[in-house]
Measured scan of single mutants.
Amino acid sequence: NKASVVANQLIPINTALTLIMMKAEVVTPMGIPAEEIPKLVGMQVNRAVPLGTTLMPDMVKNYE
């Protein structure tokens, strides 16, 4: 099973992601793959992301 990106803390709306906000975890359903973490740094979330939430592509602005 591949790990996904999971919020390590509450991430407020429009916050630019940093490494300490994210962790890799095997979850179902899968979200953004953990190997994308370096690419996510500096990208903004378009909603508040609660602690423990799996990051999905539609939660990150301009994620492709």
Rank of each mutant, 00 (worst) to 15 (best):
L10N: 13
P29F: 15
A16D: 04
E36T: 06
Q44F: 09
L10D: 10
T18M: 09
M59W: 12
A16V: 08
V60C: 02
V26E: 12
E35D: 11
L40M: 10
V60G: 01
I11N: 00
L17S: 00
T53I: 12
N46R: 08
L51H: 08
I32Y: 03
N8T: 15
L51V: 12
G31M: 03
L55Y: 01
I37F: 06
V49L: 15
L55A: 01
E25I: 06
I13T: 12
V26Y: 14
T15K: 11
A3D: 12
L17Y: 00
I32E: 00
N62I: 06
T28W: 15
A7R: 01
I13A: 12
M59G: 04
P33W: 10
T15P: 00
L19H: 05
M22C: 02
Q9S: 09
P33H: 04
V5L: 03
I11P: 00
V26M: 13
L40Y: 03
L55C: 02
V49I: 14
N14I: 06
S4T: 11
Y63D: 06
E64C: 03
M56E: 13
M22V: 08
M22I: 10
M30D: 09
S4G: 09
M30G: 10
A16Y: 10
P33I: 11
P33D: 12
Y63Q: 08
Q44E: 15
Y63M: 04
G52P: 01
G31V: 04
A3R: 14
L55W: 01
T15R: 05
V60W: 03
N8Q: 15
Y63T: 06
V49N: 01
M30N: 05
A24P: 13
E36H: 03
G42D: 09
T28P: 03
A7Q: 00
A3I: 04
Y63S: 11
P38Q: 12
M43K: 14
I20E: 13
Y63K: 03
A34N: 05
L10R: 11
V41H: 12
N14Y: 09
R47H: 15
V27H: 15
L10H: 07
K23D: 04
P33A: 09
V45M: 08
V5W: 01
P33K: 08
L19A: 09
L55R: 00
Q44H: 15
L10C: 02
V26W: 11
D58P: 07
M21I: 07
V26I: 05
A24G: 10
T18W: 03
Q9K: 11
A24K: 05
G52I: 01
L51G: 11
G52V: 01
P57V: 07
L17Q: 00
I13C: 03
L17D: 00
A16T: 06
P50V: 06
M22D: 00
I37H: 03
I37N: 02
M56L: 08
N62H: 06
I37R: 07
A3E: 10
M59E: 03
G42P: 00
G31H: 02
I13K: 13
P57G: 10
M43C: 02
G52Q: 08
A48W: 13
M22N: 00
L19W: 09
D58A: 08
A16C: 03
N46H: 14
K61M: 14
A48Y: 13
N1E: 04
L19Y: 06
P38I: 15
A16P: 15
A48Q: 15
T15D: 05
P38L: 09
I11V: 15
T54C: 02
T28D: 09
N14E: 09
E64L: 05
P33M: 09
V60S: 00
L40H: 01
A7S: 06
L40F: 02
P38R: 08
P57R: 05
V27E: 05
N62V: 05
N8S: 06
V5H: 00
M43V: 10
K61D: 07
T54M: 04
E64R: 02
T54G: 03
I13P: 08
